[in-house]
Simulated assay, not measured.
Amino acid sequence: MAHLTSRRGLLFGTAAVSAGALLAGCTSNESDSDDAAANDRPAADDKPGKKVTIGFAGPQADHGWLNAINENAKSRAGSYEDVTLEITEGSNDTAQQIGQIETLINKKVDVLVVLPADGKALTQVGLKAMRAGIPVVNLDRIFNSPQAYRCWIGGDNYGMGLNAGHYIGEQLKDKKNARVIELAGLDNLELTKQRTKGFDDALKNYPNIEKVARQAAEFTVESGQAKMAQLLQAQSKFDALWNHDDDQGVGALRAIEQSGRDDFLMVGGAGALSAFQAIKKDDGVLKATVLYPPTMAASAIDLARALGQGKGVSGLAEFEIPSSLTLYSAVVDKANVDQYMSTGFK
């Protein structure tokens, strides 16, 4: 079928025909479900369809969660016969990542998935891709302009803090004059501020609980150990600790073990395999962790494939994939840790 409009026109909403009608007419392998047929709408599925080349520009894997992002993307792409993944060497250097993305644009990939080193700094290259007719799936760190991406998918930093606060609140709700402390991440990042705000807002529901200390670390094992040691020295008595990141939590747990203290509960953040294993073993202070799931990279590949094949999302009535998807920050404790063990990152 001849396209009635350009790819650029579709991306920016200037098509002369409805995107839904065009996608329905041009899809090579529509879903066989009665629901999809009834709506005359192609839905994403696992059956091989139109071949799609996805360009992936991710981060430098210098942190467990970031490495898991890259691995989830590669693994998901490899599970599809109709997907070819053009993956760049991960970089935290803005100029280098812009160059890598421009190379993918010049290769004329069908769709781009980008986790920017700096969302603000990479907004222009996102716009460049969109204007070239290449839809962009913006992963987690958001571009400054919604015109720079077709779909954003990422974690809920505020919700992460909120759920950590409610979990701790429920554990301590019957304890008088309960005291909690917070081991945050990098304070110059907006995500850290959002996590702290969510945590503080949740604790407002528990008037018996006071946050008595907060220390910012750097999302590394070494900083987690050093900053936790300072907190332990300064706070002779507290009932709960929320640590923003399971990687720095490895260091925090070392400091706790060295102190010999076990008179409080700890809640982590992100979903590292080591945290899940410690929660399951249940012989230390770590009792739960709040997810910031790196599986979002696999879902980004799913969305990119659907875009490349002109499909919607199975289970939704709309012809198009959503413009944004915020993942839920589930609390994982001993009761449900087995369910999440396979998603834990190293």
Score class of each variant (00 low, 15 high):
2 A>V: 15
5 T>V: 11
8 R>G: 14
8 R>Y: 13
10 L>I: 15
12 F>Q: 13
17 V>P: 08
18 S>P: 08
19 A>D: 13
19 A>I: 08
21 A>K: 12
22 L>G: 07
23 L>V: 05
27 T>L: 04
40 D>I: 04
42 P>C: 08
43 A>H: 01
43 A>F: 07
43 A>L: 05
51 K>W: 00
51 K>Y: 01
55 G>Y: 00
56 F>I: 08
59 P>C: 05
60 Q>L: 15
64 G>S: 13
66 L>K: 15
67 N>R: 10
68 A>G: 14
69 I>A: 04
72 N>K: 04
81 E>C: 00
83 V>W: 04
86 E>P: 01
87 I>F: 00
89 E>V: 14
89 E>I: 13
96 Q>W: 00
97 Q>C: 03
105 I>G: 05
106 N>C: 02
106 N>D: 12
108 K>H: 07
108 K>P: 02
116 P>Q: 02
116 P>S: 01
116 P>E: 04
125 V>C: 05
130 M>G: 00
131 R>M: 06
133 G>N: 05
136 V>A: 02
141 R>L: 05
144 N>S: 13
150 R>N: 15
151 C>Y: 02
155 G>V: 09
155 G>Y: 05
155 G>K: 00
157 N>W: 02
160 M>C: 10
165 G>P: 06
168 I>T: 00
170 E>R: 07
174 D>A: 06
174 D>P: 02
174 D>K: 12
176 K>T: 06
176 K>E: 10
179 R>K: 15
179 R>F: 00
183 L>C: 14
184 A>S: 10
185 G>I: 05
190 E>F: 06
192 T>A: 01
192 T>Q: 08
193 K>E: 00
193 K>H: 04
197 K>L: 09
199 F>E: 01
203 L>H: 10
207 P>I: 02
208 N>F: 09
212 V>W: 02
212 V>H: 10
213 A>M: 11
215 Q>K: 09
222 E>A: 15
223 S>I: 13
224 G>I: 13
229 A>W: 12
230 Q>A: 15
231 L>E: 11
232 L>N: 09
234 A>S: 14
234 A>R: 15
237 K>M: 10
238 F>T: 15
242 W>R: 13
244 H>T: 11
245 D>R: 07
246 D>K: 11
247 D>F: 13
255 A>I: 11
255 A>Q: 14
258 Q>G: 09
258 Q>W: 01
258 Q>H: 07
260 G>C: 08
261 R>W: 08
263 D>V: 08
264 F>Q: 14
265 L>D: 10
266 M>W: 11
269 G>V: 03
272 A>Y: 15
274 S>P: 01
290 V>T: 03
292 Y>D: 11
293 P>S: 14
293 P>E: 11
294 P>Q: 06
294 P>D: 10
295 T>V: 06
306 A>P: 03
308 G>K: 00
313 V>R: 03
314 S>E: 03
314 S>C: 02
316 L>I: 04
321 I>D: 02
325 L>Q: 03
327 L>T: 05
328 Y>L: 04
329 S>Q: 03
329 S>I: 05
329 S>C: 08
332 V>R: 04
334 K>C: 07
337 V>S: 08
